[in-house]
């Protein structure tokens, strides 16, 4: 389903050229639950952004369901992101001027207007699943870090994505919340067949996934 071939991305920092992603090859089948482990600056976040079509590679290809995402137009890529992929970030990614339910509904604003889906009800259902239904009308500033992360997770599922790209999804959360969120991911993975690629620096978290990769200096290797 996800095919990454010879993917390379370099950055120029001053006079130095840094290879953030260095000829990476990766295949992720539909419904797989994988993790990419690595230290800060190893290039794992850049790899995730390349797979998700957020930044353009210098060379190499990313194919999702056979479509080379960097050969299609920007509009088509936006649509593909909206339909198939969603991101969970390590930072607070909610829009502060919108309340929680509005934040969860943001991705639906870019869906075709004639979809016969009651997104509001679905959003409430998702907030119920992540355990913050009672905070639907609250603003992000009034929620704890864990609650904000749950809201962002609910938002990630609103468009029924096929792929979730999670960048340190439990980064600054306590162990209990981390366990709850991982449990939720596993449930969604099993129930809906959603593909998960989780980027983390935590070996404990990586151990909970089916397949593990390690990234160092832009090079990706599968762990045994």
């Amino acid at each position: 389903m996800i095919e990454v071939k010879e993917l390379t991305k370099t950055y120029k920092v001053g006079s130095d050229i840094i290879k953030a992603v260095d000829h990476v090859n990766l295949e992720v089948k539909k419904g797989e639950f994988i993790s990419i482990l690595g230290h800060s600056g190893s290039g794992k976040t850049t790899l995730l952004s390349l797979i998700g079509g957020l930044t353009k590679p210098d060379s190499g290809t990313v194919r999702i369901d056979g479509t080379d995402i960097w050969s299609i137009s920007d509009n088509d890529l936006s649509e593909l992101r909206n339909r198939k992929i969603n991101f969970i970030y390590q930072f607070a990614s909610l829009i502060p001027t919108l309340n929680i339910i509005e934040n969860v509904l943001v991705p639906t604003a870019f869906r075709p207007k004639d979809e016969p889906i009651n997104y509001y009800e679905f959003a409430m259902e998702l907030l119920d699943i992540v355990g913050i239904k009672d905070k639907a009308r609250s603003y992000p500033a009034h929620l704890s870090g864990g609650q904000q992360r749950r809201a962002a997770i609910a938002r990630a599922f609103i468009n029924n994505p096929e792929i979730i790209l999670a960048d340190e999804p439990t980064g600054d959360l306590d162990e209990e919340t981390e366990a709850e969120i991982m449990d939720l991911f596993k449930r969604m993975n099993k129930a809906k067949g959603i593909t998960f690629i989780i980027v983390t620096h935590s070996s404990d978290l990586a151990r909970q996934t089916e397949k593990r990769y390690r990234m160092a200096n832009g090079i990706l290797k599968e762990e045994a």
Binding site: L54, D74, N82, R83, V106
Partner: peptide, 10 residues
Amino acid sequence: GLLRAMGAKK
């Protein structure tokens, strides 16, 4: 950037 990641077009 987040809106673009969620599918917003240019």
